[in-house]
């Protein structure tokens, strides 16, 4: 994906005692039902062309970008399902943007305007990322609107509203350590299909927002550090502790089956359906070179 901005994870405190205070051993999970309908949701984004906009004496960083969100439905077979590709012209510094219609071959690409308040060179990328996350969240929410399924969204939970089916965020990166060392010591000892007890994530001045747990996808291998192969899962606190425990058990049992393949540089945390979905969404954004060329031509025409 190339350049990745460091996305903020707001500081939160962990409450390790929501399920049990005994963190001495991993929790094995009972054999879970593997037959239900399972959905993976993920998004990708791509910066097509960076621009600097000027108006009067003002200059602002901006970009043409594409954000896509899609889903894979697993029920016996895995199939690509709902997806959405949207193109954006993000302008930083609060500068007002306007829609752009760009011709590529026989088709039109419409770039929707999005003004981003930040004036930092990274602000437009962050803006695009936020748009992608919003698309992911709305897709996950829509999919979870139907009952009898389990929706696994890539990354932190983007929304906390109640849904008919549970939505679980699967976070593959350790941006922030939430646990104290005494609890953290359990993580290296997790085996696939085992999890830590649930812990609550509380943001300052807020009520308990989400339940989280760590689980391992594949057995630890020699060259890896002891946090490799771990993911953090979270579910909104609104489901209640009992439901959260049931969901945690089910997800913990399910995930090793979908572990990423060694051919993926982000293996094993990047789940196989998610990796395939990302490639598929990238492909649906269109050929990068062609889009870039069309945008350049559009800019030249506009200026000329």
């Amino acid at each position: 994906m190339g350049y990745e901005p460091v996305m903020q994870e707001t500081p939160a405190t962990a409450d390790p005692s929501v399920e049990t205070s005994d963190w001495s051993a991993p929790l094995p999970v009972p054999q879970a039902d593997l037959t239900g309908e399972l959905w993976f949701v993920d998004g990708v984004r791509r910066v097509e062309l960076r621009v600097i906009a000027s108006e009067g004496g003002r200059r602002a960083f901006g970009l043409f970008g594409t954000a896509a969100a899609g889903a894979v439905r697993c029920l016996g077979r895995a199939t690509f399902a709902d997806h959405e590709v949207r193109r954006w012209m993000v302008l930083g510094g609060g500068m007002p943007a306007e829609p752009a219609e760009v011709t590529v071959g026989a088709s039109f690409l419409v770039y929707e305007p999005k003004a981003e308040p930040g004036g930092d060179p990274n602000s437009p990328v962050e803006g695009l990322h936020t748009l992608m996350q919003a698309a992911e969240a709305s897709l996950a929410a829509r999919l979870a609107g139907d009952g009898d399924r389990l929706v696994l969204a890539d990354g932190r939970l983007g929304f906390l509203g109640p849904t008919a089916s549970p939505v679980v965020g699967v976070v593959k990166r350790f941006v922030r350590a939430y646990l104290e060392p005494e609890h953290d010591a359990l993580l290296p000892r997790l085996a696939p299909g085992e999890r830590t007890p649930l812990f609550g994530l509380v943001y300052e001045g807020q009520p308990l927002e989400r339940y989280a747990w760590y689980t391992r996808l594949v057995p630890l291998r020699a060259p890896w550090h002891d946090h490799a192969g771990l993911v953090r899962c979270e579910v909104r606190a609104g489901v209640g502790p009992d439901q959260a425990r049931a969901i945690a058990d089910r997800v913990t049992a399910l995930l090793p089956r979908f572990a990423g393949r060694p051919s993926d540089p982000r293996a094993p945390q990047n789940l196989a359906p998610v990796a395939a979905l990302e490639a598929w969404l990238q492909h649906r954004m269109g050929h990068r070179g062609l889009v870039r060329r069309a945008l350049t031509a559009w800019l030249v025409e506009r200026e000329g």
Partner: peptide, 20 residues
Amino acid sequence: EGAQFDTDVFLVDKGVLPVD
């Protein structure tokens, strides 16, 4: 389409890997 490796077919069969 979208499968890269010969063994992908087994993942597809298990319902892990979506392909066209």
